[in-house]
């Protein structure tokens, strides 16, 4: 464990909690892409099946349980409890265009052709593009609530910190996982224009509005 990975995990946890609290407190999921949240639930489910097969640490296990629990709770709030506030018209990204190619790639490019390893690889590839429906929805509505931008900032920051973690681990532990690194770079790059808008607008107290 190193400082980048720990702060990355905490940033990820913060994002998940911010979103859950935003929906719960405001009793509304306006501006939130339910499709992205379903993809994240799939990402955690396929990645953390090793909860059943291997134990790494209390921290590892508890974080995985929290991530999975919050992901499904968020999906439940969006599609069940507060479904009247779900903006399905703007959440129109065709996720099959993500899941199918990612599934195919996971079968072709992986570290080991075993069931759990292919699912882990699928989860890594899927996570790198899972935010696209959310970013697409914001581009369609042309704006985002400030709390949603904080959620996205923490979510984007987490994988950027993981990139620093992989540099650290390469240097100090001569560990590197090309699949995770490449997917992590793609994932972080997808946030770049959002990061620019967040830093130049939201941090200056303005509302995040895209040129419609």
């Amino acid at each position: 464990m190193n400082v980048f990975r720990l702060t990355g995990d905490l940033s990820h946890l913060a994002a998940i909690i911010i979103l859950l609290l935003k929906i719960w407190k405001s009793r509304s999921c306006a501006g939130i892409s339910g499709k992205s949240q379903i993809l994240f639930a799939i990402v955690f489910t396929t990645r953390y099946l090793d909860l059943l097969t291997s134990f790494i640490s209390i921290y590892n296990t508890s974080m995985k349980v929290i991530y999975i629990g919050c992901a499904y709770a968020t999906v439940y709030l969006i599609y069940m409890k507060f479904r009247a506030t779900y903006d399905g018209n703007h959440d129109s990204f065709r996720v099959e265009f993500l899941v199918v190619p990612v599934g195919g790639l996971a079968v072709l490019v992986n570290h080991d052709f075993s069931f759990l390893e292919i699912l882990w690889t699928f989860s890594i590839y899927l996570e790198s593009v899972a935010i696209l429906p959310q970013l697409f929805m914001i581009s369609k509505t042309g704006e985002a609530e400030t709390i949603t931008t904080h959620y996205l900032f923490c979510l984007g920051l987490y994988r950027a910190l993981y990139l620093l973690n992989w540099i650290w681990r390469f240097y100090f532990e001569s560990f590197f996982d090309m699949i995770a690194i490449v997917a992590g770079v793609v994932q972080t790059v997808l946030y770049c224009d959002f990061f620019y808008l967040y830093i130049t607008k939201v941090l200056k107290g303005k509302k995040l509005s895209l040129p419609a």
């Binding site: 990975r5 990645r47 090793d50 991530y67 390893e117 882990w120 993981y162």
Partner: peptide, 10 residues
């Protein structure tokens, strides 16, 4: 491919 496939990261 006996890589240590125990993924210790979240």
């Amino acid at each position: 491919k006996a890589k240590n496939l125990l993924h210790d990261e979240l």
